Amino acid sequence: MSYPFIEAFEDAKAHARREFPKESCGLIVKGKYIACENIASDPSTHREDDRDCGCQLCSFEISGKVYAKHEANIDVVVHSHPNGPFFPSKADMEGQLLTEKPWAILVLDEERAASKPVIWGGDISPVLGREFMHGVTDCYAIIKDCYALGKDKLAEQGIVGWPHDPITIPEFPRQDAWWEGDDDLYEENFGKAGFVETKDAPQPGDVFLMKIRSSKSNHAGLLIGDSLIVHHLPSRLSRREPAGLWGRQATKWLRYKGAAADA
């Protein structure tokens, strides 16, 4: 197994099974799993097909007193997703940013054992060869992570021509298939992340936006050296590809100018 705290996660999986079909929740503290009570709303308040349903079937909440008792020593915040999905919800992403701790999801159903944990908010995984997962390793994540790693660490991964030292750009919590609703991840937020639209010839470090079967810019990638781009499409591993084809289909090019640039 390639994930940390193997024994702790086995205990978390057993807890998830005991609590099914409700969401379980707990904390890995100094390498040990602590099962917590889910104090979200009673399942009787469940609202079918409501992404914002706050009952124990759809959500979790750990007592503030319990969390505060262990906060300084928390390794991972763990919760289950009964019957899926495997990826974090917008609320999960918001919670992880609020705690500034790694979070993990365990997925299970009535028959199958809990899955290998999906962990995010901790160390950055290698940017090439990733499996696509909404909110964890998707097309925005690879942009954010390349900027966070900077030129020296990217060079160690064989990505050459990157011009920037490490730069932190914001995370933007998002629902899966956000482009099918009212949200517009890239157009609404690129200025907040420090980018401005450029009409100049693209240069390494620039971001391209594209519309793939959508009226909104719902895909993005990065120009690196040697006329290559790095990007991540659903159902494909993250990869380098020649920039020409993708550049011709780009609807907009963005250049980093500093935090909270005026878009």
Rank of each mutant, 00 (worst) to 15 (best):
V66Q: 00
W178Y: 09
A12W: 02
I167E: 08
G205T: 03
R213N: 14
I159W: 13
R240E: 10
A68E: 14
Y147G: 02
G121V: 10
W253F: 04
D165M: 08
L237R: 14
R248Y: 02
A243E: 08
E131T: 12
D165I: 06
Y256G: 05
E131P: 08
V196A: 06
Q175F: 07
L128G: 08
L154S: 09
A40T: 04
W162F: 12
I169K: 13
P88Q: 15
Q249C: 01
E100K: 15
L154I: 08
R112W: 01
F172P: 04
I229E: 06
D42F: 01
A193G: 07
W120H: 06
A104R: 03
P204L: 14
R255C: 00
S125L: 15
K32S: 15
L185S: 00
A40W: 04
D109A: 12
D165W: 03
K199S: 14
R18T: 11
D152P: 01
E94V: 15
A114Y: 02
W178F: 09
Q175T: 07
R255D: 04
V136F: 10
Q96S: 02
Q249L: 14
P85N: 14
V107H: 12
E241D: 12
P4A: 05
L106G: 07
C146G: 14
S24V: 12
E187T: 07
R17W: 02
E197V: 01
A259P: 06
L108I: 07
R112D: 01
Y140Q: 05
I28D: 08
N189I: 05
G84E: 09
V207A: 00
A250I: 09
G247A: 11
N38A: 07
T251M: 13
H81Y: 11
S125K: 15
D138V: 09
H231T: 04
S238E: 04
W120M: 08
V66D: 01
A12D: 04
T45D: 11
Q175D: 09
G122I: 09
H231P: 08
F208K: 13
K101E: 05
K144N: 02
E61G: 00
E37Q: 00
A8F: 13
A177M: 10
W246R: 03
L128W: 05
G225Y: 12
R248D: 06
N38E: 06
G161Y: 05
V107I: 11
G161K: 08
L245K: 15
